[in-house]
């Protein structure tokens, strides 16, 4: 059984954000929310300043799947190859706005890293699909396709011949902390642990129903995620 997996090599990332932009272009992700992003943190005192990078992306762990089942009709589900997708028809058909929002908000709450959010234009769920439409054609996701330093490697971890398997075999890779992601499909090589604290995880993309109702979303979009 295929197990589609990302391996992020933090050693090779220089934070150019080509993946971020490629994803937004590929998936028409609106301004103000992101499906993946490079987050960085500067450490040290002059002149020994270093920058650590964290390739923030949905770990496809399935927490949102469970939340969606427990709080709605289970519109979020995992495919056989591991990719977690939203069935928009199932989510909306014949249901009230309140029911829909409850299910979406439960999924947003369940995500430990803020990777499940709302599309501020449509109000519908927004999450990384690992570019399933490309993967089904034998292509890799847009972010991995463009990664200039080859810091994002994508493939089937159940196939011992795949690059992902080989990279996983050669290196010690682990999921990003914290360990709340129940069954992650994204692994990191030499990720700086201190970077992945709650602050870094609960990022720009977490748009909730309350934000939309309170008008806070305007701020999110207007500030373009800026500080």
């Amino acid at each position: 059984m295929a197990r589609m997996t990302f391996v992020m090599d933090a050693r090779r990332c220089i934070g150019c954000q080509a993946c971020t932009v490629a994803c937004k272009a590929e998936n028409d992700v609106p301004l103000g929310v992101w499906r993946t992003q490079i987050r960085s943190k500067e450490v040290g005192k002059y002149p020994s300043v270093r920058r650590h990078f964290y390739q923030w992306i949905c770990a496809q762990c399935g927490n949102c799947v469970e939340a969606s089942q427990n709080n709605g009709v289970g519109a979020v589900s995992r495919r056989a190859d591991g990719i977690v997708l939203v069935d928009y028809e199932k989510l909306t058909k014949g249901r009230t706005k309140k029911q829909i929002d409850t299910e979406i908000d439960a999924a947003i709450e369940a995500c430990p890293i803020g990777a499940f959010s709302r599309n501020p234009v449509t109000g519908m769920p927004e999450k990384c699909t690992q570019c399933a439409h490309r993967v089904d054609k034998g292509l890799v996701p847009a972010c991995a396709q463009t990664c200039l330093g080859r810091a994002r490697i994508y493939g089937d971890a159940s196939d011992p011949k795949s690059e992902v398997s080989q990279v996983l075999g050669r290196n010690s890779a682990r999921p990003a902390p914290p360990n709340d992601c129940s069954d992650p499909y994204v692994f990191y090589i030499e990720l700086e642990g201190s970077l992945v604290d709650r602050g870094a995880l609960e990022g720009f993309a977490q748009v909730k129903t309350s934000d939309l109702n309170s008008g806070k979303i305007d701020q999110v979009v207007n500030s373009l995620g800026g500080k």
């Binding site: 937004k24 272009a25 998936n27 028409d28 992700v29 609106p30 301004l31 928009y88 028809e89 909306t92 706005k97 829909i100 599309n119 501020p120 234009v121 449509t122 109000g123 519908m124 927004e126 939309l212 979303i217």
Partner: peptide
């Protein structure tokens, strides 16, 4: 938001 939230297709703003 309310106008479009019932729709199925997620229309992007980019491009």
């Amino acid at each position: 938001f309310l106008q479009v939230s019932g729709g199925v297709a997620a229309a992007g703003l980019l491009g």
